[in-house]
Simulated assay, not measured.
Amino acid sequence: MAKVYVGLGTNLGDKEQNLRDAVQKIEEQIGKVISLSAFYVTAPWGFASENSFLNAAACVETELSPLAVLQETQAIERELGRTKKSVDGVYSDRLIDIDLLLYEDLVLSVTSPSGAELNLPHPLMTERDFVMLPLAEIEPELVHPVLGKTMKEISSGMKKRLD
């Protein structure tokens, strides 16, 4: 069993229910959710929107490969109503976003048969407080496989925005 860490976000509709639905589908399609952070209210990152986000992080035990986890998270997003992905750093409001952050201590860059790129660890995770604060909450001593710092160390300077 591999430990996989995912980031969850939503800024449309019933945000809390969107996150709960995503966690339930992750349990059904990827593996057992062994830890789930609190839900964090955050401002949009990388684009302007009147809608705040609700974010969380989860640790999942899975038998799936990294690419299979990516394919399942994208399938879950579609099942929950997400119709388009962010492309080339252009972000927009979304019903659900599930980012594969870490897969054990794997460092990987690969393109799936469907053309989706998978980069592990997630290349922008350490720049995003809405990723790092929930992740540090559930796994403070987890070490980033490239930076060699714990999630707690990386997130220590970030502003906490809890509802």
Rank of each mutant, 00 (worst) to 15 (best):
V110M: 11
L36K: 12
K160R: 15
A22F: 00
L118W: 06
W45Y: 14
P145C: 09
L19D: 01
F39D: 03
H144I: 04
V90T: 12
E141W: 02
L19C: 00
S86K: 13
I154S: 05
S114T: 15
D88R: 12
T150G: 03
D93L: 02
E27Y: 02
E16W: 08
S37C: 06
V90D: 11
T83Y: 07
L12F: 05
S114C: 12
G7T: 11
I138Y: 04
S112G: 04
R78T: 09
M125K: 08
P44I: 02
I154K: 07
V4H: 09
I30P: 05
D163M: 15
F47Q: 13
R82T: 04
H144F: 01
T73P: 07
A75M: 13
A2R: 14
R161G: 13
K3M: 13
D88L: 11
V23P: 03
H144Y: 01
M158C: 01
A68R: 15
Y103D: 07
N18D: 03
T42I: 08
E28F: 00
G31I: 00
R78Y: 08
Y40F: 13
A75C: 09
V33R: 02
L54D: 11
M158P: 01
M132S: 02
D21S: 14
K160T: 14
L70W: 12
E63W: 06
Q74F: 05
D88P: 00
F130R: 14
V6I: 14
S65F: 08
N51G: 10
N18F: 01
A68P: 06
E117K: 14
T10E: 06
I30R: 04
E16D: 14
E50H: 03
G148R: 04
H144P: 00
L108F: 02
L120A: 03
G157M: 03
M125V: 13
M132V: 11
D163K: 15
Y40I: 07
L8E: 09
M132D: 05
S156Q: 12
D97L: 06
E153W: 00
D97C: 06
L133Y: 03
M151L: 15
Y91E: 08
F39A: 01
N18V: 00
G46L: 14
E28I: 00
I30F: 00
P140F: 02
G7R: 07
P121D: 12
S35M: 11
A2W: 10
V131M: 10
Q17V: 03
K25E: 11
A48S: 08
G9R: 13
K160Y: 13
K85N: 10
V146C: 06
P113F: 05
